[in-house]
Design a protein around this nucleic acid. Structure first.
Lengths: 243, 243
DNA sequence: GCGACCCCATTGTGATCACAAAATTCGCGA
DNA sequence: TCGCGAATTTTGTGATCACAATGGGGTCGC
């Protein structure tokens, strides 16, 4: 049996394609790929220790979800962020996520809230250690643990698609600036959940999105646009480029 | 050269996969597949006159877009509609489509509106002829011709994904009942566009969605649920099953 | 007559190969 | 030293084959 590196530990019954997909998806959400970075099927296949077929399937799936894009040359790369696209992301998030949270509220149990608190604490720990990856993973878990409770698969899928599209970009922002400056709206959200305050929960989620996104947008987009839009180099290097 | 049946006429530079994808997607949006109907890679490949690889790519893409689904058996089939999923579709449409229309309004030119009118007339023609397929195609074109003008690719993509998910279901409804009973909210929408009335346009789109969906939901879901939820047979036969 | 069981056709998955197009590299010439 | 072009490498696409699992159909036993 050939030695596989990542994408291992298939929970029995998972196809290679599924395993590769989850690995890549996780990496995108955590910001493991830099915007503008090119990915190749054979390159990923070598890295993950599988043949090109499962990688091909996974990459096509991610392209369908807009997490990756294919340009006319048929070259696959991580999409760049533009001001326009950024505004679309913000609007989409603000439209759907507070709504999902509000719909999750009625079915929320005490243990659900406890679990969310634990996630939020892990976010704090990651932040104090300067662990950007841990922060992003926690942030993702916090939001989607809430949204899942709404039991609205369609809206949930749409929101996931949006997150996949700004994941790489978020990493650039959080990698460049100190996350500890951010006000913690998660606490406000938790408080609203405990008291069953729907309006408060909506507001907290909206504020969390608004802060995070405006933070990202102002800093990074201004930077990118000032630095010239053509084929700029990326100071940021992915966490595990070829490890 | 082997004789191809459908998916022909590749506009030069289109891959076989892309061609197959568009063919299948069109067919789904028009309701060419019945909910619950199983599709096989080799079957589609034979029908379309291509090998299984492009079909495999296209089907996986449609699965990623939730237009098709793969059950645990790894069998691919057209998703069924449930009451819960249906409510989610309605809510998602009501959330996004009036907004998209409103955003399209400012950049709408007289010729845009003329084109929309032409589409609406083709819908009337199809309706009077009892041409369900033409009606659905026209309805899709009418809505998305508007939404495209908003220049919001993200929201547009999300809406497309939602349409793909209720396409087969809509066909069941429209195939079973007479569409001529429907009030024409497209005219109201066109009137609002001409006068630049954003609120009116939002209302017209919302009403169009509300009418169409409640029509579908009340009739078909009630029917489906009354008829027993287990492995029922489908009276409806796809337009070109094996032609 | 009916049910359980076995066999085989069919399914999606994945590997490997061939191919054309694109990008990169190398070398030649000015 | 620099620019341009040809050769080579690398890319995604698609075809074909092998394989394991699933499902259906037919047959045998009761």
């Amino acid at each position: 049996m050939p030695a596989k590196r990542a994408a291992d530990a298939q929970p029995a019954g998972m196809t290679a394609h599924e395993s590769v997909y989850r690995t890549l998806r996780e990496r995108i959400l955590i910001g493991g790929f830099a915007p503008g970075m090119a990915v190749t099927l054979r390159g990923l296949a070598d890295t993950l220790g599988v043949s090109v077929m499962p990688v091909r399937d996974a990459v096509r799936r991610l392209i369908a979800e807009r997490a990756l894009m294919m340009q006319d040359n048929r070259r696959v790369l991580v999409p760049e962020m533009t001001r326009s696209k950024f505004n679309q992301v913000v609007f989409a998030r603000q439209s759907m996520e507070p709504e999902l949270a509000a719909r999750a509220l009625p079915s929320m149990t005490a243990s659900d809230i406890k679990a969310l608190q634990a996630i939020d604490q892990s976010i704090d720990r990651a932040m104090s250690k300067g662990d950007v990856e841990g922060y992003m993973r926690g942030n993702f878990q916090f939001h989607f643990a809430i949204y899942k409770l709404a039991r609205n698969d369609m809206l949930l899928g749409l929101v996931e698609s949006v997150w996949l599209q700004f994941g790489p970009f978020m990493r650039v922002a959080y990698g460049r600036y100190d996350t500890s400056k951010l006000e913690d709206f998660h606490q406000a959200a938790l408080k609203a959940m405990r008291s069953g305050d729907e309006a408060g929960l909506r507001a907290a989620i909206a504020a969390d999105i608004g802060q995070g996104m405006s933070f990202i947008g102002d800093e990074v987009l201004a930077h990118a646009e000032a630095g010239g839009k053509g084929a700029r180099t990326h100071a940021y290097v992915p966490a595990r480029a070829a490890s």
